[in-house]
């Protein structure tokens, strides 16, 4: 019941954001909406792999693969925004398939460490690649001028659709198979689930979405550099999940919106941004082990019980 309401709230927020981006495309708040949308997609993407029980620090690398694919194709070949997004998604998916097949036999701390190494290797490879601009990155991702007024609204609509697609998959029988693997892998195997294949599939789906978000991030700043795609991206994403709550797809979205607004309006972090996000993860896990959405659900249940008791 609460979760149905959260779904509605999500749709309403998306509709309002798209409308606002169309109405006042040049406003500063449009930038805030875009940052929150990227953050929400990162949170939804990292949570999706958590369905099979894994923490993918390599999320930052897939974000970067999307950003760099889009940047390279638009600046070197002049491909349009839409094509760049599709290409970024395909690149992210292909790399995820290879990386996943090689590494998803491991799990838990091992997979987390390997995915962390992958994030670092990606960053170092980019720094060493002259055709990707090395440390300076690639500048010059623009959408055409006549399209400019619709750009922000389009990004919000596309990423919101992808986030919703993740939620739909989570609710399908495939999504239940993900959770079954996390719950008890032996049972999943015993009912005919090819656990490795399904785990890789989960990573691929998440990475396609993350890579498309990465491509959008390049078009928003018009620039991609190695520093935009460090493993801290995954730490931020984890903060959204832990603060908002892990149980329901709207959790990381709520976390992403709150933390983006906090970063924009409440606190000027400067160099302390990482300290802040680390603290949020720690405090959320101590004070709100189920996140905000989990806490809300418990409160709703408690109230329902009280009402029932008072009535009876």
């Amino acid at each position: 019941m609460l979760f149905d309401k959260l779904n509605l709230l999500f749709l309403a927020t998306v509709a309002a954001s798209v409308a606002y981006c169309l109405a006042v495309p040049g406003a500063f708040f449009v930038q805030v909406i875009l940052w929150a949308t990227l953050a929400a997609t990162l949170g939804a993407g990292i949570r999706f792999v958590m369905l099979v029980g894994e923490l993918n620090i390599g999320t930052s690398a897939f974000y970067g693969i999307g950003g760099y694919t889009a940047a390279y194709l638009t600046t070197a070949y002049g491909l349009p925004f839409g094509v760049a997004l599709v290409a970024a998604g395909i690149a992210g998916g292909l790399v995820a398939a290879v990386f996943g097949y090689a590494t998803m036999r491991t799990s838990g701390a091992y997979f987390m460490l390997i995915s962390f190494a992958f994030a670092e290797i990606f960053r170092m490879l980019v720094v060493e690649s002259d055709f990707l601009g090395g440390n300076n990155g690639i500048i010059g991702l623009f959408v055409s001028v006549e399209y400019e007024p619709y750009f922000a609204a389009t990004v919000v609509a596309i990423l919101a659709t992808l986030i919703s697609a993740l939620a739909v998959i989570e609710n399908s029988s495939l999504g239940k198979s993900f959770i079954a693997i996390r719950e008890r892998e032996e049972i999943a195997r015993s009912v005919g689930i090819n656990v490795l294949a399904i785990r890789v599939l989960c990573l691929v789906i998440s990475s396609v979405v993350i890579a498309v978000a990465g491509a959008c991030s390049g078009f928003i700043t018009h620039l991609v550099t190695p520093n935009d795609y460090t493993f801290m991206i995954a730490v931020f994403a984890l903060a959204y999940v832990k603060l908002g709550g892990e149980e329901h797809p709207t959790g990381p979205i709520l976390g992403a919106i709150l933390l983006t607004l906090a970063a924009q309006y409440l606190i000027s972090f400067g160099a302390y941004q990482q300290v802040f996000f680390g603290t949020v993860i720690a405090v959320a896990m101590i004070l709100l082990p189920q996140g905000i959405t989990g806490r809300l659900r418990d409160l709703v249940r408690l109230t329902a019980k009280r009402t029932a008791r008072d009535a009876g």
């Binding site: 959770i179 079954a180 008890r184 049972i187």
Partner: peptide
């Protein structure tokens, strides 16, 4: 531990049926 404990009865059976 012969069940998917955190899932509903229905989802236990769904997961077990879906591969077939």
């Amino acid at each position: 531990d012969s069940l998917l404990k955190g899932m509903t009865v229905r989802d236990n059976i769904l997961v077990a049926t879906t591969q077939f």
